[in-house]
Design a protein around this nucleic acid. Structure first.
Length: 884
RNA sequence: AGGCACGUAGCUCAGUGGGAGAGCACUACCUUGACGCGGUAGGGGUCAGCGGUUCAAAUCCGCUCGUGCCUACCA
């Protein structure tokens, strides 16, 4: 015996506000979602049911702008979809707070400079300076104090980011929060080093390294960028040792003349062939240097012959190594010409006194100053190394524009300075690294080429040591010999159980604390890791690698790595490298690459350009859903100019959902199946939408999914279906209780499905409307844990008799609306009568939906006329007579 | 210099072998029975250019121009 189903209860709309109050709703639902714990990762569920996100840890001391909202929303949209598909979501958040951006911010904010030599000072006593203190010279603070100030600032910055991310509705599991400087991350970064050390993948060497003289630290190839600079060719006459001959080299770096160690030209160059094997004599310093042939020298550049210095560029390094040239480093770590005494060591000269006298005028000068000074000195004929009596500067400097390598965060050109640095050996693993990239799905696919391109062109191993303070220290000490000199070739590494360790306060295994600095004792490695050395472990940080193997097994590799394209060569590359070196694995299955938000002039937003758009006021004005709509409208990998009008569309869509939801749910009826032809035709189209949108979401094509859903909602739901069944759903039509019940059921099914399709993008408004009826009805307390729409939603609903019924009804309705508008009447104005013309076949098919069309156009009667000329499915509305 | 991407309406962008589209902006109209934080209707494009393949090209191929990014060179 069947119990009759209870009727569908109408929503009492008087209990709802007139307009959707998004700020109140956002605050309410945020709290509610927290209480329900719907973002929580469930460690008990198996890997197969889990979806793991390797969230980018933002640099919190950087500027906060709409670009953050943009890319993080992309991830959240993907995550919310997977959650509704039943996945157990692992979605952590980290903060990449260590490194130079924070140090720079602290220096400026507190007007301090760190000096590791000064004793511990009291960080608590240091407050941000006021107006006049800022003009004072920076206060020098100890390393611990400086680090404490960095922590203080990052804690504040993290709060601002967290507030934004919460406000925009990221469904992050905040229990999985980390900072790349916290104990857990330091442990793993240091363990990573121990593992690479044990496997022989890291080495320490004293070698020419790219050096930023401003920050006084080494930098890696990945952090280098080219900048166009004004420069000049300087033609400088060199002598030839033991002869009257001379030749002219061209250089853009005359200030490095004292560092000249050789001269080279192309082996086939007839102009200089006779010089090979002889020695040149540099002007001013009268240093004899070898002249050797090299195929790397370009006869068409400059004068075709050039000086090799230690070091002007990477080619100099190559020549220096290949030819076994002496080292004459004139440039100090601070970017100034350091003390040099000709006549000692490698500092050979034919005229020591003259050389030292000349050099004294340059010593202590910056590169720029030294260049200016030496050019003047070379105008003096007495500086010549040949007997021509002419000044060594053979011609006026010829200006040129050329690109110069800079550290991406630095202000002065990079120099090559010989320093002791730690490297990860990668050059010999290019093929494996490229193969690892092939195993990863790149979205969009062409981003994989960026990775391959970079890896293929890699020229240097990864320099991981930085001469900075706020970073993860190397877990390394060096033994001191009997004279108290450190033995860098015998590093002492920490044991795993001591991690995380600070070698400046802890002692290495087998030593006592009192042996620090003593002959036969030890000294700490003062350097810290490159920030990327830690952040390249983000998947392992989340999975608790090594510290919790069971958890690691469930969370590594991750499913997706969301990030933007400019850090493929850094973050993505290093993460892939680490996963390969540690576990011979890939770190994630897919890399999901977001584009950039550009300013309206299509320039990249940056704090220094002052063209950033901050996000908070946009959230206030357009709601979180509106902002998310804007972000989700852009495809992956595509750079997009910021356009506020897109936010308006989002806000309008939110309003429309609120109102459509209110209407659809305010219709009560007896419970009947969906049987009416128009309703079945609508459901038929809806099912096709679900299929297309689900497919798009699976492929991370959320923009296309959103566009399709939005278009359907607007054109097939609110503008048409809702209008066509309005009268019937109210029970005012002629089709009786069954017709009414079918209409109401279809309206509700349409709403329920559309809300769920929108939910990943518009979490707040969809949850609000869902809560009015569907939450109780389905038992899904939140739409975000409701079941993603599928065929199951349409089970038991018959296909329409005519698949085109819906479009036919719409065409007729539009034809009538058009005539009403042409007559200057409101669309809702009732009609006494009208005539619909169409071809015979169309009119025949029209019969099944005719009643709905008449009712929605408020036509009392309708005559039809066969017009054979009209195409199938086309109607003309004629002879409209308004009722009043 | 090489690679990748892009060039579609005034603007921001979809569309990847058959009908040139959306929103914004613009024009006219509608004063509201879910919605004026609305709605209806409309004007507007040499799909960068040239050539090719095809019955058919915004879409595929080649070249050219322009923009952006990545890489290289930078004595």
């Amino acid at each position: 015996m069947n119990t009759p189903a209870p009727p569908i209860t109408a929503l009492d709309t008087t209990s709802l506000p007139k307009h959707f109050d998004s700020p109140t709703a956002e605050a309410y639902w945020d709290r509610r979602w927290d209480e329900l714990g719907i973002y929580c990762y469930d460690a008990a569920r198996p890997r197969s049911e889990t979806f793991v996100v390797d969230t980018p840890p933002p640099t919190v001391s950087g500027s906060l702008h709409v670009g953050h909202v943009f890319s993080y929303t992309h991830t959240d949209v993907i995550v919310r979809h997977r959650r509704m598909c039943g996945k157990n979501i692992f979605y952590p958040m980290g903060w990449d707070d260590n490194g130079l951006p924070t140090e720079r911010r602290v220096q400026n904010l507190f007007n301090v400079r760190c000096d590791p030599q000064v004793p511990t000072s009291d960080a608590a006593a240091i407050a941000p300076p006021t107006g006049k203190d800022l003009r004072q010279p920076p206060r020098v603070v100890s390393r611990p104090t400086f680090i404490e100030l960095c922590h203080r600032v990052t804690r504040e910055d993290e709060k601002a980011f967290m507030e934004l991310f919460r406000r925009v509705g990221l469904s992050v599991d905040w229990r999985q929060e980390y900072a790349t400087i916290d104990d857990h991350c330091r442990y793993l970064a240091q363990f990573s080093f121990l593992d690479l050390f044990a496997k022989g993948h890291v080495y320490c060497v004293e070698a020419p390294t790219m050096w930023d003289t401003g920050y006084q630290t080494a930098v890696a190839q990945a952090e280098v960028e080219d900048r166009e600079q004004e420069g000049a060719f300087h033609d400088i006459r060199f002598g030839v040792d033991g002869s009257d001959e001379s030749f002219v080299i061209a250089t853009t770096r005359p200030e490095l003349l004292a560092a000249c160690v050789a001269v080279t030209a192309h082996p086939q160059d007839e102009r200089y062939r006779q010089l090979f094997g002889r020695r040149a004599l540099t002007p001013l310093f009268r240093v004899p240097v070898v002249i050797f042939p090299s195929a790397l020298a370009d006869p068409t550049k400059g004068t075709g012959i050039l000086m090799v210095c230690t070091f002007g560029d990477q080619t100099d390094v190559q020549w220096w190594r290949e030819q076994g040239l002496p080292l004459r480093q004139v440039l100090g770590r601070d970017g100034r010409l350091q003390e040099v005494v000709f006549g000692t060591g490698n500092w050979e000269s034919r005229n020591t006194d003259a050389a030292n006298a000349a050099y004294r005028q340059l010593q202590g000068l910056s590169v720029k100053q030294a260049r200016k000074a030496i050019v003047e000195m070379l105008r003096d004929p007495s500086a010549a190394a040949d007997s021509s009596g002419a000044a060594p500067l053979a011609a006026a400097p010829r200006p040129l524009r050329h690109s110069v390598k800079f550290y991406e965060k630095g202000d002065s050109p990079l120099e090559l300075v010989t320093t002791r640095q730690w490297f990860v050996r990668l050059l010999d693993k290019k093929d494996e690294l490229i193969a690892a990239g092939e195993k990863i799905g790149w979205f969009p696919a062409f981003m994989g080429a960026r990775y391959r391109n970079w890896t293929d062109n890699l020229q240097l191993d990864w320099c991981i040591s930085r001469q900075r303070y706020f970073g993860v220290p190397f877990p390394v000490w060096y033994p001191l010999d009997g004279a108290g000199k450190p033995c860098h070739d015998r590093p002492l590494v920490a044991s795993q159980d001591a991690l995380p360790v600070d070698p400046t306060t802890a002692a290495p295994p087998g030593y006592g604390a009192d042996q620090r600095g003593a002959p036969g004792g030890f000294t700490a490695e003062a350097d810290v890791f490159d920030t990327w050395f830690t952040s390249s472990l983000s998947p392992q940080i989340g999975s608790h690698w090594i510290r919790n193997p069971a958890r690691h097994g469930k969370l590594f590799p991750a499913d997706i790595r969301p990030q933007s394209h400019e850090i493929i060569r850094t973050w993505a590359f290093y993460t892939i490298a680490k996963a390969l070196l540690h576990e011979r694995n890939v770190p994630w299955h897919s890399a999901v690459i977001s584009g950039w938000i550009l300013d309206p002039d299509r320039k990249k937003m940056s704090k220094s350009k002052g063209n950033t758009v901050t996000p908070m006021h946009l959230l206030d004005e357009y709601s979180a859903d509106g902002v998310r709509y804007w972000a989700a409208s852009a495809r992956l990998g595509t750079d997009t100019a910021f356009d506020e009008s897109v936010l308006k569309i989002g806000r309008r869509l939110v309003t429309k959902l609120f109102n459509a939801g209110k209407f659809a749910l305010s219709q009560g009826a007896g419970r009947f199946p969906i049987t009416h032809e128009l309703d079945r035709a609508f459901v038929h189209k809806l099912a096709a939408l679900v299929e297309a949108v689900s497919k798009d979401f699976e492929a991370y094509e959320f923009a296309s999914a959103l566009a399709d859903t939005e278009s359907f909602f607007w054109h097939n739901y609110t503008d048409t279906f809702l209008e066509l069944v309005k009268i019937r759903a109210r029970g005012e039509g002629e089709s009786g209780a069954a017709g009414q019940g079918s209409a109401v059921a279809a309206l509700r099914l349409g709403l329920s499905v559309l809300l769920r399709l929108f939910a990943p993008v518009l979490p707040y408004i969809t949850e609000e409307v869902w809560s009015w009826a569907f939450a109780a009805e389905t038992g899904a307390c939140s739409i975000h844990v409701a079941t993603w729409p599928s065929r199951i939603d349409f089970a038991g609903i018959d296909a329409p008799t005519d698949g085109g019924s819906f479009d036919l009804a719409v065409a007729a309705l539009y034809a009538i609306n058009k005539q009403k508008t042409a007559a200057g009447a409101a669309v809702g104005r009732p009609l006494q009568r009208l005539v619909l013309a169409a071809n015979a076949a169309t009119l025949e098919r029209f019969t099944a939906v005719r009643q709905d069309v008449l009712e929605s156009s408020r036509a009392a009667t309708c005559a039809t006329r066969v017009e054979a000329e009209l195409a199938d499915g086309v109607f003309l509305a004629e002879e409209l007579a308004f009722a009043n």
